[in-house]
Design a protein around this nucleic acid. Sequence first.
DNA 1: TAAAACCTACCTATCAGAAGGTAGACTGGG
DNA 2: CCCAGTCTACCTTCTGATAGGTAGGTTTTA
Lengths: 184, 184
Amino acid sequence: MSSTRSKILDTAEEMVRAGGYNGFSFREIATLIGIKSASVHHHFPTKEALMLEVARRYHENFFAALGVPKPARHSPEVQLELYCEVFKKAFQSSERACLCGVLTNEAEQLPDSVREVVIEFVQANIAWLEQALEKSPNDLNAVKRAELVYSALEGAMGVASLKQDQLWIDRVSEAVCLTTLSLI
Amino acid sequence: MSSTRSKILDTAEEMVRAGGYNGFSFREIATLIGIKSASVHHHFPTKEALMLEVARRYHENFFAALGVPKPARHSPEVQLELYCEVFKKAFQSSERACLCGVLTNEAEQLPDSVREVVIEFVQANIAWLEQALEKSPNDLNAVKRAELVYSALEGAMGVASLKQDQLWIDRVSEAVCLTTLSLI
DNA sequence: TAAAACCTACCTATCAGAAGGTAGACTGGG
DNA sequence: CCCAGTCTACCTTCTGATAGGTAGGTTTTA
């Protein structure tokens, strides 16, 4: 409940989403929240530990917003729209790309533990989408559809943050909803 | 001509694709090609100048592989498959994500000049796809289709490099070709 | 044609600043 | 008193960048 601790996590998340793992420093976080870098080390001993907790928290929040897929209760259309909504909200919260999307594009230089968390995020997304879309009538199997949807939204979020244009996500979301579920 | 110069560009490109703009240094490039960092500065005075030339070269090579879209001569299907092929080849060349895709996810911390080159790359891709797809029968307009295709392939390339799995691009390419052109 | 001037590509040495991280001391509330 | 939270002070390593020098080739000019 230490408010400093969550301020550190908030600031770190924003900075990673702005410039990646190599784009933030203990000193800068400290300055932004008005403490010294040694105090940040008190809460998170290493950069890897801090990054790890930021990534885990992001994962949790993301899937909390998403909920459990309910293929029995909601149509694929409805669930796909919900999925797109969560990406839109994630973007709106800071006008920046997905934390794990950013980390994905630095994978090779990431500490192993962080890369694993990112991979888990991807797999959790695919699993969610597979369940949500499995009943849609389509000659593409659920895995391929899921991977397309996830790739498209991550890509769209990156471009939206590059161009500072929320409409990119809106248009790609619309296109993804229309095309993904429209095959015979 | 100067082989050192192109070695620097090659090495820098690989390092950026591995870890972004903040993921490479003059010293590391120099060490990898067997010279001193001051000699890298002789060829490229600043990091921004080096990054700029790497990005411009990548843009050129990418569109050289793509060629000019020929909507009169080739069907949208054929051209979309060609487009996916170029992404596949770009991945295969180093098992890494698209240079501009990586830079997209660091946009905020990039020098302005570099960010502009990245934005131009995105716009050139959309323009190419719009031309290639404009004749496809579809109730989605060409812009939305183009943005979906580009977002999906950039996203897929990121995940493919994260998971070191070329099949991600193959599957997303297949899905994108099937769904994008299949509406009434 | 020979000397002077210049250019290219590298080098050594160095800088100031920022990075991640550590040790030890201070402070205020339970 | 204890201890979480913060501080000062510092270390080492790396960063982008600069100054100045050297060897060798080319170009200009007297």
